[in-house]
Design a protein around this nucleic acid. Structure first.
Lengths: 347, 347
DNA sequence: GTCTAGCACTCGGTAGAATCGAGTGCTAAC
DNA sequence: GTTAGCACTCGATTCTACCGAGTGCTAGAC
């Protein structure tokens, strides 16, 4: 699934002379603005190259031959191809946010507080407000965190709640149901044993459980298996999606909207999408560059979040391939940095 | 916000003679099927009334005068109005699910297990699969539950996690940040005091906190205020929305899709929407019957979930006003009953 | 009286023709 | 290498005619 762009791009992409590059950039910019095919004359007048439309046209023919542009039909303007967008993005002078947006980010992180989950969720709202695109915030799971505390609480004779606190501050709950009645004393004892047994371990650890057949031992065995059996890779990862209504006006076809929404519904897919892109070392995935067929008309921007230098999640933006890369990338960048700083500095 | 339908309906709605009722029903049924205006001839042939289209026409004129139907323009077929749908729904012979769907529900509840949250989330997926509409599952908050256990866990010198277990099995986490370094001993002592202080209380209770100025007392005060200050009405309520991509094909206009999605994004709104409808004693809210302007082209079906006879949440379905009421209501009904049973019987 | 067959009428939707114009490719001249 | 000029293409728009589904009305049948 991870196969494209990273390998192919450098070789093929950097061989555009200055004028071609300027023209390509102008086409992309205008198309992003207007959503229409771009003609040679508007490029000629628009860009700061002092050449006529005829010259632009012949250059466009070349750009089309090289795969950066396409014509929807003979004698219409040109559109950027995926490759065209890729070149554009790779050669983007990193954008600067407007002062209003900078202020908005600053205010947000100055004022935000509360639980990690709430901060992440509000961050996704912030990103959507900043960019008008659908945003994704992924918080890393606690797979590497150690267990700080384990407690078993009795609801009634056959129902207990297993509460685990991890060193990253996350709390996980498991329901334990027994086939036999247990007393408060049993639960307290099991709780004590579990705490002693699991303290300092991570999810996925193996541990020696008591093999006795009494109630306490059963409780302990059951609890341990519930807790340690979790998939260490994905469990505990948190996804917050903001502004999914924006897909409705980012894409024209109802069918496209449906496809994109159906992906967004599956949080695990979204996590792996973001992770995939990060793994490829990209900050933008355009069209088919990520492996998701259904998102072929989308571009995804990601920016990693770190805590104390350790990867701890990511923020992302999802829009049409003709999204406003410069602004969106700047926003994602700024927010991910602030978020990293927020969690690193002191919560 | 709760004003309509319940009061007005009985007087105005029940005065349709059998033939008008049959015609109205036929119009609604066909429109739901085809999404097109319905003409007199198809009604005449379709329904089991043995009259000509001309007779149907004159009846339709009457139905239009009384507000059950409208003509989009002169000389086209008729559409049901909100009032027409309301009559249709009120006189609906309660539908029966197909055997395949019954089996699907049965299998689902036979196989489902795990945390309450997971069950509710999967239930929303089930509802969407059954009906092809967007589904909503609301789990009641723990506002009336008592506190079973409170525990303060130290992350580092200035960060603690407050973990509270409620009698309904829910677990709530709060982060506590201090301006001063605290020792493990302090935390343990504060934890002990909190447990003693809060055991058996509910959210919103008032409690006497120590007024001393030492670290332990500060920790206790801070924790208590975090925990008890929560809004007892909405906090802790869980919302699971399934199949939001279905709105894309349930409505035609992009603008409508956008509006509906933007509502679904705001979970608190969804909760209050569902709650409103339940409070009105309705099981279906059509068009403007719920107070939400943006959802005026939607119908919402709700069915309450109870645990041991106590209200504990609801399931809902959201679709276009021309949704398949009979099937959708039957599905919501069946699922809510099974869900109630699932949580009542034994988790 | 109630129902229905018949008929003139309305009006949205569709198909085709004409037209427009943005944009192209090509070529000859600079 | 660049550009002005020009014929050409083809989607989009407009206009017209027309079809047909569906209506409302009325006169006659039951």
């Amino acid at each position: 699934m991870a196969r494209r762009a990273a390998t192919k791009t450098p070789a093929t992409l950097s061989d555009l002379d200055a004028r071609k590059a300027t023209i390509l950039e102008a086409v992309v910019n205008e198309h992003i603005d207007t959503a229409q095919p771009v003609g040679s004359s508007s490029v000629a007048s628009n860009a700061d190259l002092a050449v006529s439309s005829a010259t632009v046209r012949s250059e466009m023919v070349a750009l089309e031959r090289e795969g950066y542009l396409i014509q929807p039909h003979t004698s219409s303007g040109r559109l950027p191809t995926e490759k065209g967008y890729r070149y554009f993005v790779d050669h983007l002078t990193s954008g600067v946010l407007g002062p209003a947006q900078q202020l908005q980010i600053k205010d947000f992180f100055a004022g935000v507080r509360g639980e990690v989950e709430d901060v992440l969720e509000q961050t996704s709202t912030l990103l959507t407000q900043l960019t008008s695109y659908t945003s994704v915030v992924v918080g890393a799971g606690h797979s590497h965190s150690t267990i700080l505390s384990v407690q078993l609480v009795s609801l009634d004779a056959r129902h207990q709640v297993l509460v685990t606190v991890f060193s990253d501050g996350s709390v996980v709950k498991h329901s334990v149901v027994t086939q036999f009645d247990v007393t408060h004393v049993d639960v307290a004892e099991a709780s004590r044993q579990l705490h002693a047994l699991l303290l300092g371990l991570t999810i996925g650890s193996r541990v020696q459980v008591p093999s006795r057949s009494d109630h306490v031992a059963s409780l302990v065995r059951e609890s341990v298996s519930l807790l340690l059996a979790e998939q260490p890779t994905v469990e505990g990862e948190q996804v917050f999606i903001g502004g999914s209504s924006r897909v409705a006006d980012a894409f024209d076809g109802v069918e496209t909207v449906r496809k994109v929404l159906s992906i967004l519904e599956q949080e695990l897919l979204v996590v792996s999408l973001v992770q995939d892109i990060l793994d490829q070392g990209l900050s933008v995935a355009i069209g088919s560059e990520h492996g998701f067929e259904l998102l072929s008309s989308c571009a995804v921007i990601v920016a990693p979040v770190t805590i104390d230098g350790e990867p701890a999640g990511a923020v992302g933006l999802l829009g049409p391939t003709r999204m406003k890369y410069r602004e969106a990338m700047a926003a994602a960048e700024a927010v991910s940095q602030q978020l990293s700083h927020h969690f690193t500095g002191g919560e």
